[in-house]
Write a protein that binds this DNA or RNA. Structure first.
Lengths: 183, 183
DNA sequence: AAGGGTTGTGCGTTATAGCATACAATGGCA
DNA sequence: TGCCATTGTATGCTATAACGCACAACCCTT
C-alpha cells in the first residue's frame, strides 16, 4: 500500500463526511460502486486513474485534493470559498447553439472579485476562452492560470474548472463551446 | 479512456524520450514492467495509483507532472504586438486549426477607413464574427450591416462578403471559422 | 419488541491491470 | 549480405480492481 493510497483513503473519507454523503450517495454521484469506495477508504484497494477520475469529478474537486498530504489540508478558510459580494457573473449568449457546428458562443463578464467554479460538463466538450477585456484567471488541473487581455486557453470541460477575476476592474471574455459528442 | 489517462500517456512518453530512456531502462528504474509501460503510453491501460506512484518515483518527478494537460496554451496573440496604427487589416491567429473541431479562431484589426471585400470561399465554411473593440460593418446579402462592440454575426462564407471600418477609431473582432466539409 | 429504512462491510463473479516471455521491426557493423 | 544488439509490440497467464448483491449492525418510529 503506497503512501499515496493512504492519502487518497484519508481524503476520500474526510471529504465524504464533510458533505454528509453516504457510500450509496457517493456511488451515485461518482459512478463508482459503493463497495469499491469502501475498499478505497479502508486502503484495501489501489484505484486506477480512471476510477479516481470518476471520484474527483463526482466531488467536483481537482486531482490535487486527493494527492496532498493530510496535514496540508487543514488550512483555514480559502478565499475562493468566501461569498462574492453583491455582483454576479453576467453570461450573454452571442450565438445560440448551432446544431450543424455543435457550437455555441457566449460573452461573459466577471465583476471584480468574482469567482465561479464549475462542475465538469459531460464528456466531449471543448471550451475556448479568449479574454476581451481586463485580466482573468482560469482554474484547471488544480491551479489558477492568469490570462491577460488577448490571451486564450483551450481545454476539455470534462473536468473541474472555473473562472475568477482578482483585479479591481471588470473582466470580459468570449467562451466558445464545442460539443463533439465523443463522450 | 479518460482525458487524464491521455495526459499520462503523453507525459510518460515525452519524459521518457527527453531522458533518452528505452522501455527496458524505464522498467528497471520504475519497477513497472515494460509491457505495462508500453500499454500506458499507448493509452491502452489505466494505471492504478500504486503503479503511477512507482513511475513518478522512478522519474523522480512530482505527481503533478503527469496530470497537467499538454498544449493547454496555444501561444495566443499578444495584443501589444499588434500594430496600433496601420493601413492594412491585421489578421492574427489565436488558435490554430483544430482538426477535431474543424475550427480556427483569429483576431482581426481593422484600421480606421479600411475596407476588405472577399470573394466567396469554398462551400461549407461558416464564419462567426464578434466585435471586441470599436464598431465595424460587415457586407452581406448586398448590404453593409453595422456591428457595435459585443455584437456578432454568423454567415456562410460561400458568398461575397466583406469588412470595413468607417469610424475614426480602430476596430477589432474575433473571427471563428468552421470548415464543415459539406461543400 | 417488531418492523422498515439507512448505514457500512463481506462474498462471488467479471473485467482488466500487471507480469514474464516471446516475437518482429529497426539499425549498426563486420 | 548476414549477424547481433536494441527497440517496441503481441501473447498467455496471474493478481486484483471493480461490480452487483446480500448481509448485519444500527438508527428510527409505532
Amino acid at each position: 500500500m503506497t503512501p499515496v493510497s493512504k492519502n487518497i483513503a484519508y481524503h476520500l473519507k474526510k471529504l465524504r463526511k464533510e458533505l454528509g454523503w453516504s457510500l450509496d450517495r457517493t456511488a451515485q454521484e461518482t459512478g463508482v460502486s459503493k463497495a469499491m469506495l469502501g475498499q478505497i477508504e479502508r486502503g484495501e484497494s489501489s484505484p486506477t486513474i480512471a476510477t479516481l477520475w470518476k471520484i474527483v469529478n463526482g466531488f467536483h474537486v481537482p486531482f490535487s485534493v486527493f494527492l496532498e498530504e493530510p496535514h496540508l489540508l487543514h488550512n483555514p478558510t480559502e478565499p475562493e470559498h468566501l461569498p462574492s459580494v453583491g455582483s454576479k457573473m453576467y453570461v450573454n449568449p452571442i450565438f445560440p447553439f448551432d446544431p450543424e457546428l455543435k457550437c455555441e458562443i457566449f460573452i461573459i463578464q466577471l465583476p471584480p472579485g468574482y469567482e465561479q467554479l464549475s462542475a465538469p460538463h459531460e464528456s466531449g466538450i471543448i471550451e475556448h476562452i479568449v479574454v476581451v477585456e481586463g485580466t482573468m484567471e482560469v482554474f484547471l488541473q488544480g491551479a489558477w492560470k492568469t490570462l491577460q487581455k488577448g490571451k486564450g486557453l483551450r481545454f476539455d470541460a470534462h473536468q473541474p474548472h472555473g473562472y475568477r477575476n482578482t483585479t479591481s476592474r471588470i473582466a470580459c471574455f468570449h467562451n466558445i463551446i464545442h460539443y463533439t459528442g465523443k463522450g
